[in-house]
Amino acid sequence: MKTRLILLAAGNSRRFGSNKLLYSIDEKPMFMYGLEVMKELILKDFDRELYVVTRFEPVMEAVEEMKSDPYLHDRTHIVNSPESTLGISYSIKAGLLEGEIQPDYYVFMVADQPFIKVETVERLIKETLNQEKIAGCVTWEGVPGNPVIFSKHLKYELLELQEDQGGKVVLKKYMNQICKITASCEEELIDKDTKDEFDMDGR
């Protein structure tokens, strides 16, 4: 099964007050945590490719450095998406439309979820594929979150998303048919929107 991993790293960070993806957590920009998870995932399976959707130079530079690894070079791609300022649907579409080969599944992960674990995303991918489900997501206490995975059969529904509509709009239509993976802890799914939220946790 061909799987396209899509890291969404082009958000507006309106509530954060600055570019959230560049915010330093333990002396590392936030987006690097997601990028490193994606790197491990494509190293685990040669049938996986990574597309990083962004409009920020530091993210592009980090991906270019990652591509210097010969095992990653041909399977790692930068998708420059200036239209992502108009809403997350533009980032989703950019990740779907890039490239010539259509994969069997698309995995979306946001770059402002720094505590997600490789093992959790790996379980999501493997169990969704093994069960041949139309989609899947990571949950905590029954509440669906990111990352999410979609079969190629849902590609055109995802392409119909508008402005700030995310993939969950499509996911909700198929909740009884999807694979649900429980995160190892609540922190994995935390997506903090302000600097104060990080400061309160001492990070």
Score class of each variant (00 low, 15 high):
77 H>K: 13
55 R>I: 06
114 P>D: 14
144 P>I: 07
79 V>I: 15
81 S>E: 12
30 M>Q: 14
28 K>F: 06
72 L>Q: 11
83 E>V: 06
160 E>R: 11
62 A>T: 03
81 S>R: 00
84 S>F: 02
4 R>W: 07
30 M>L: 15
185 C>Q: 05
4 R>P: 04
63 V>L: 06
3 T>F: 02
48 R>F: 07
84 S>A: 15
186 E>A: 14
53 V>A: 06
29 P>K: 02
48 R>N: 10
157 E>F: 06
158 L>Y: 00
131 Q>M: 14
26 D>W: 10
42 I>N: 06
77 H>G: 06
20 K>E: 01
78 I>V: 15
141 E>K: 13
66 M>F: 13
119 E>Y: 11
57 E>Q: 14
112 D>L: 03
172 K>P: 00
6 I>F: 03
24 S>I: 09
150 F>M: 02
62 A>C: 10
141 E>C: 09
147 P>V: 01
102 Q>F: 13
17 G>V: 06
167 G>A: 12
9 A>I: 08
127 E>S: 12
154 L>Q: 10
5 L>V: 08
135 A>T: 01
32 M>P: 01
127 E>G: 07
55 R>Q: 11
137 C>P: 00
160 E>L: 08
79 V>P: 00
29 P>T: 11
87 G>Q: 12
151 S>H: 09
116 I>K: 00
18 S>H: 09
16 F>S: 03
58 P>W: 00
154 L>S: 05
126 K>S: 07
